[in-house]
């Protein structure tokens, strides 16, 4: 036995009634007959172990996300990039077709602020990359918004109504998931894209919703049976009201995380389409197009493919890091560090 002691050394019983909070610690007794310490800190040696800090889901989430250094850094980076891209006219040192005759095929240099070098015509690649980033971001944002709307709506409908609606929608989603996305995109883009960022975005979005639809459906299926949803239904709330007021808020987390995945994927897809010549039309310098243009001279002017490529990677990586931060912040089992 761990602490054997002789009966005569037994600690003396000391009866000190403290019900009224005289002296020592303030004790309140509630209905269950439990003593709770007043959290005044006056008697630090006394506590009953019930003072667990209550934090709301949202606070917890925010705290965890803000602690995620990588995600916060990435967020900042994306913010700067976005601001720069959408103010390209003011930020870029040159216009995207402006030619610096003196400095053709120049590697990255501070001279004349050709930070990403110039091409054979003397066009400044730093400026072209900024304009190109705008195209990428435009497309990506369109994709993210539309595919989120479609995915959320279809997923919600499938999960809420179940039955044959669910079956058809999900078979359809399955199909889109296994099909070679790029091939279908190329067909669409070739016949309907017409090189416009908005159209390209819509086309990508039409093929990017299934993963989100599945996730939202899953959450809705489980929420359907929850008491508060049943209660809302019993209280006569309409389907739409239940779906949007009561169920949708609970899917915000997965939707946000999925949005980052879609954003990153859209950036890469747009670049690939542009690289293959079926994306946004010239002269708008899409990032993929810049890389394609730099290909012919990539052995001598390496910066022409490296710089736009690194930009794509940096943006996609930053988005993925933000997504990772969100996922960690939402995951209750995740360890905080």
């Amino acid at each position: 036995m761990s602490e054997p002691s002789q009966p005569d050394e037994r600690p003396k019983a000391q009866d000190v009634p403290v019900r009224t909070g005289l002296g020592g610690a303030d004790i309140v007794t509630d209905d269950a007959g439990l003593h709770r310490a007043d959290d005044s800190g006056e008697a630090p040696e006394y506590h009953d172990g019930t003072q667990i800090v209550a934090r709301s889901q949202w606070q917890l989430f925010r705290r965890r996300f803000f602690r995620h250094k990588l995600a916060m850094g990435s967020m900042l980076f994306l913010l700067i990039i976005t601001l720069a891209a959408f103010n390209a006219e003011r930020v870029a040192p040159y216009g995207f077709n402006e030619i610096d005759v003196v400095m053709r095929s120049t590697p990255p240099t501070f001279e004349g602020w050709h930070l990403f070098g110039t091409d054979q015509l003397g066009r400044d690649y730093f400026s072209r990359v900024i304009y190109g980033t705008r195209v990428s971001l435009q497309v990506a944002v369109v994709v993210a918004i539309i595919s989120t709307l479609i995915g959320t709506t279809l997923g919600a409908v499938a999960g809420y109504y179940r039955g044959w609606v669910d079956a058809i929608l999900m078979r359809f989603a399955d199909l889109i998931i296994i099909v070679p996305l790029l091939a279908v995109l190329l067909i669409f883009a070739a016949f309907f894209g017409q090189g416009q960022p908005m159209r390209i975005g819509v086309i990508i979005a039409l093929l990017s919703w299934p993963s989100l639809a599945r996730i939202v459906r899953g959450v809705f299926l489980s929420l359907r049976e929850k008491e508060y949803v049943q209660a809302a239904r019993a209280a006569g709330a309409g389907d739409l009201r239940i779906m949007f007021r009561h169920m949708l808020p609970n899917t915000m987390g997965p939707i946000l995380v999925n949005m980052t995945l879609v954003l990153a994927a859209a950036i890469l897809l747009e670049a690939t389409l542009a690289f293959l010549g079926l994306g946004v039309n010239p002269p708008t310098p899409a990032l993929g197009l810049l890389i394609n243009a730099g290909r012919s001279s990539m052995l001598t002017s390496w910066w022409l493919i490296i710089m736009p490529g690194l930009t794509i990677v940096a943006i996609a990586l930053a988005i993925n890091f933000v997504g990772d931060g969100l996922r960690d912040a939402l995951d209750p089992t995740q360890q905080e560090k």
Partner: peptide, 30 residues
Amino acid sequence: NLPSGCSFHPRCHLGEGRQTCRTEIPPLFE
């Protein structure tokens, strides 16, 4: 964050209001 003293004291009728229970960890009396 175990309760101080006897960890059962917040729920104990016998120990209710007794200072010892709240401040001294009872050993395992043989």
